[in-house]
Design a protein around this nucleic acid. Structure first.
Lengths: 234, 234
DNA sequence: GAATTTCTTATTGCATACAAACTAACGTTT
DNA sequence: AAACGTTAGTTTGTATGCAATAAGAAATTC
């Protein structure tokens, strides 16, 4: 009775498929800024109906990747240097606060896990950049997530996720020079030390340094890219 | 079973209709926390099809009012006192930064408009509470929006809108005692003065006071409501 | 009698169909 | 020739139908 006629993609719902495809295309620069996207075109390209594509459009709109105007469709949002600065500003404000709270509330187990992640980071710092970029991004994300967890700020996490976006993190790492990678690893260790000492001020300041350093690297990268074709935006 | 009560619907699209209805119902407490909402029921109640209702669900999900789980529908999100504290924390961080930036960048024209709004606020401070609650909320929202505009932070505005939500502002005002209303008006005047003096530190500190004061009022209100039936959550 | 299984039912996810809105090109009018 | 109105052709917005999944009830088994 349960005869699967054809199951094209098990587990992956259609909306997810559309969402992932679109976000990937935007992040990779395949869909350039201000480009107009049509529901129908994407739908046929993915072999879906317009309904899930539309849903993905709305979600990406809410997250700031697309600009949706009521009867005129969606266009890819443009990120000016100023926009990126704002993102870093917010990250700095929120994450340094999170680090402070984590210092006050982290359990021994959480501190141990933080330390392990920082170690992992240091170990990877010496590898050639390209080999471990994805992995490094993942570990970094885990570190920051764990910090939020230790701070006991569930709502904040949702907000941060909206702002920080994992792929952008990867982009940050791509902007780092070797010395900056090591500095970033050192920051993580310092944050762990501050949390371990339950010193909120210290943790907050260390995190502030950490974000500002990343900010600096990204803005330098942007200036460099100014001279290049807008082919490789990521 | 078309229970189409009133739908003037001049130019109002179906999604908007569903969105407004749902948000209103959530904010007014008609839909209590953890309550399960079914697309079909809402749709027939509003005389619409499920499609726009569904879209409204997703939007409210992205904004944190509903919790959506893939094959199990939507339930009204629960706001713990801790959640509300987090919102105020973020508001304090971001808005005080905004005020600082506004102090550095505001034009004469913007300052004039800020002052006018602050005056308007003071004038309303002496009126009986119920009469001008909506109006006061509107003016307050204009004040804060103008400040963001003066700070030149477009992306930040989107983020703040996500966090601060105008109806919640109204709720704040409902929590104010007469003395606090006057204090709030005084804060606005002080912020204008700081912006006029182009003193970022001062503007930032004044805004911080302003938000913390609101935070205090709301948390007191919450404690009071603890003893009451959960009927009137707003 | 409790637990597991199966069957029923209610609800979501997706596809298709249709209506409304916008775009743009053409022709008419002044 | 310029401006406007009209109309054909997209493209988005909404409705409906069907398939898939989850929740709940009844029945069977241990």
């Amino acid at each position: 009775m349960t005869m699967n006629i054809v199951s094209p993609a098990k587990g992956a719902r259609a909306v997810e498929q559309a969402y992932d495809f679109l976000k990937n295309a935007i992040l990779s620069g395949e869909f350039t800024a201000r480009m107009h996207l049509r529901e129908g075109a994407i739908a046929t390209q993915l072999g879906l109906s317009r309904t899930p594509v539309r849903e993905a459009f709305r979600r990406l709109g809410a997250e700031g990747w697309l600009e949706i105007t009521p009867n005129a469709g969606a266009k890819v949002a443009e990120w000016s240097p100023r926009d990126i600065e704002e993102v870093f500003e917010v990250r700095m404000l929120i994450e340094s606060r999170v680090a402070g709270r984590a210092a006050q509330r982290a359990t021994e187990a959480q501190i141990a896990r933080l330390r392990a992640l920082a170690e992992q980071m240091s170990a990877m710092a010496e590898c050639p950049v390209d080999k471990v970029l994805d992995e490094r991004s993942a570990v970094n994300a885990q570190f920051h997530d764990l910090l939020v967890e230790a701070a006991g700020s569930q709502r904040l996490k949702r907000l941060l996720d909206l702002v920080v976006e994992i792929p952008m993190v990867k982009w940050v790492f791509g902007s780092y020079q070797p010395a900056e990678v090591r500095r970033s690893a050192a920051h993580h260790h310092e944050i762990v030390a501050a949390v371990e000492a339950h010193d909120a001020e210290w943790a907050s300041a260390a995190m502030k340094s950490h974000i500002l350093s990343a900010h600096h690297a990204v803005m330098r990268r942007l200036r460099e890219l100014d001279g290049l074709p807008k082919q490789e935006q990521l």
